[in-house]
Nucleic acid binder design. Sequence first.
DNA 1: GGGTTGACGCAGA
DNA 2: TTCTGCGCCAACC
Length: 107
Amino acid sequence: MPKTDTPEYRKHVYDLVRRIPKGRIMTYGQIAIVLGEGYTPRTVGYVMRNANVDNVPWQRVINSKGGCSTGRILAPHDIQQQLLEAEGVEFNERGFCRVEEYRWEPR
DNA sequence: GGGTTGACGCAGA
DNA sequence: TTCTGCGCCAACC
């Protein structure tokens, strides 16, 4: 079972995130299921936290609520909605988007 | 080695 | 529908 501390583990997550098309999103749970290998939303989130300093569109990765708990991240919460809106993702007043509609699954 | 926290998810009230 | 609690796995103190 891989660990999040290994570059391989993180690369796996990063690669999947980079595959997300423009104007699409993925939830932590979805990623955890797709990666399998004992991945859990927690571990995925842990990796994403470090992805902040990487060339990964981490803003496309959100929680099941369709939003992002940006209040706990190191980066400003404005970029999340801003970048996604630039890609065509619509957000409501609460700062949430329709996950069921924008959710993308790799194959 | 043990306890707490966390970019989460789901079930229950 | 929204809020609260519990569980999950790994990292941090």
